[in-house]
């Protein structure tokens, strides 16, 4: 019973994050929404594993807590290499 307020808050926040991810407007807003959704998922999984009476399933939340940041790192690297490529092509056009 004591978990319901936090679970509701998490679910509503997930919905809000999805609205932001769908609306955009820029790509970074979408990345921000995904990252936020990830941390909400970690919390939801942690709370839900107590809610369902199986606290040994915290492994799942732990897995997301560890791996979730890789996505953002990949995005950072993607933007950076795109910027690099753009500059490179620009330089070649100048020559």
């Amino acid at each position: 019973m004591i978990f319901y307020p936090v679970v509701f808050a998490l679910l509503v926040t997930m919905a809000l994050a999805i609205v932001r991810a769908v609306k955009g407007p820029s790509l970074y807003d979408r990345v921000l929404a995904v990252n936020m959704f990830g941390t909400k998922t970690v919390l939801f999984l942690a709370v839900a594993s107590y809610l369902m009476g199986r606290p040994d399933f915290l492994d799942l939340a732990l897995a997301y807590a560890l791996i979730n940041s890789i996505g953002v790192m990949a995005v950072l690297q993607f933007f950076q290499s795109r910027e690099f490529r753009r500059r490179y092509e620009h330089r070649h056009e100048a020559e």
């Binding site: 991810a21 979408r30 990345v31 999984l45």
Partner: peptide
């Protein structure tokens, strides 16, 4: 990015 969210929701 949205399919990242899709996967998270799927897991939950």
């Amino acid at each position: 990015m949205l399919s990242g969210i899709f996967s998270l929701l799927m897991a939950v």
